[in-house]
Design a protein around this nucleic acid. Structure first.
Lengths: 198, 198
DNA sequence: TCCAAAAAATGAACATTGTTCACTATTTGA
DNA sequence: TCAAATAGTGAACAATGTTCATTTTTTGGA
């Protein structure tokens, strides 16, 4: 009969995390409460703390899932695209689409403020680096002579700029402008940043 | 003897707001508590609510002050600069400097999540538009033939991209790269976005 | 099969915090 | 001088994160 405990542990951790993801996706980061997670998952308040140290840790787990989804979406977006500029534009569009379609989860990912003494989790840094690597690959094809240090900086610049556009767009600060215009601006941004100097 | 009440009202509102600004500047948005504000300003908890409807309203007032400071800093940065490209680079640098030197206040400005049903305050939209106008001015000098609609979109793009760089830089995601390299990237970004198509 | 130790699960209790409100103190204008 | 208006208070309440003593379930060996 051995194995029940292990199964219970895994099921509880999974159910609690799923409940947390649902909370955030539906109502946003500020509506993520321990009692609501416990209720949705069918456990008591105390049980939550047997699996996660605190709410921050739960949110980190939620954000890890979101990062994974972004990675998947972004990976699919560049499949079969030979031209590096096309790939970069597709990356930006996929990133923007994900943010639009998973607004609350995306906001939670970038809006979660950890205490000053708490470092950004290793896994998040790793996923972030993977995304930068995909960008770097295309950039290097476009500018083969670029130094390693330049490339490191440039891929961060490209990511940050696109991220900024998506962020401001989500906050409705592009108000009055159609989605079509926004898309053109994204393409313009990518093209300008990624084109090699002649 | 009439006038004591008015003076008291103004003093209380000012002291409470100053206390709130200090709280945020020192410890960040998550450390902004009604009891702490009241204590610092020398009032009771209840008094806070005679001047501000809730914490959100206090934070909006704090952010209004921050926006004013950004406007001032940015305004000074372009004084005496004739070349529009120089002005845009100076704008970006000033924006970045302010964020670095007023980290917690800057984070509070862009990290404050209002409830979904609460609109962004009018004054913030107005200040934001003023900042965009300054950008638009220089952009138009560089590309006089740009249409009004294009200009509207493009100034948002420029702001958003610079904002993204500053944001990612503040989150230490440019880790390993010197401040010098970052500055060069900012200049590169502005130059690429603002240069007119030949 | 039975049972004591280990693990899982519970929910009451506590501390913190935003918010309200009945009450007291001060100011006003006549 | 005084009643109404305004300013100010702090106890009380509700919501929420977190802890922990207690109960229930599972385990592995006698």
């Amino acid at each position: 009969m051995a194995g029940i405990q292990k199964a219970k542990r895994e099921e509880a951790a999974r159910k609690l995390l799923e409940a947390a993801v649902a909370c955030v996706a539906e109502q946003g980061i500020d509506a993520l409460h321990v009692r609501e997670i416990a209720r949705r998952a069918g456990y008591s308040v105390g049980s939550v703390y047997k699996y996660y140290a605190d709410l921050d840790e739960i949110l980190i787990a939620v954000n890890t899932i979101t990062l994974g989804r972004i990675k998947a979406v972004v990976g699919e977006a560049i499949i079969g695209k030979d031209d590096p500029m096309d790939r970069l534009k597709a990356l930006a569009r996929a990133y923007h689409s994900f943010a639009l379609e998973n607004r609350k989860l995306w906001e939670a990912l970038f809006g979660h403020r950890l205490p000053d003494d708490r470092p950004i989790p290793e896994i998040h840094l790793k996923e972030n680096a993977a995304l930068l690597a995909v960008i770097g690959q295309s950039l290097l094809e476009l500018s083969p002579k670029m130094s390693a240090e330049q490339l490191e900086a440039r891929k961060r610049t490209c990511f940050a700029a696109v991220h900024g556009l998506v962020l401001i767009n989500l906050e409705n600060r592009f108000v009055g402008l159609s989605g079509e215009v926004f898309m053109r601006e994204m393409d313009f941004l990518v093209e300008r940043l990624a084109t090699a100097t002649v």
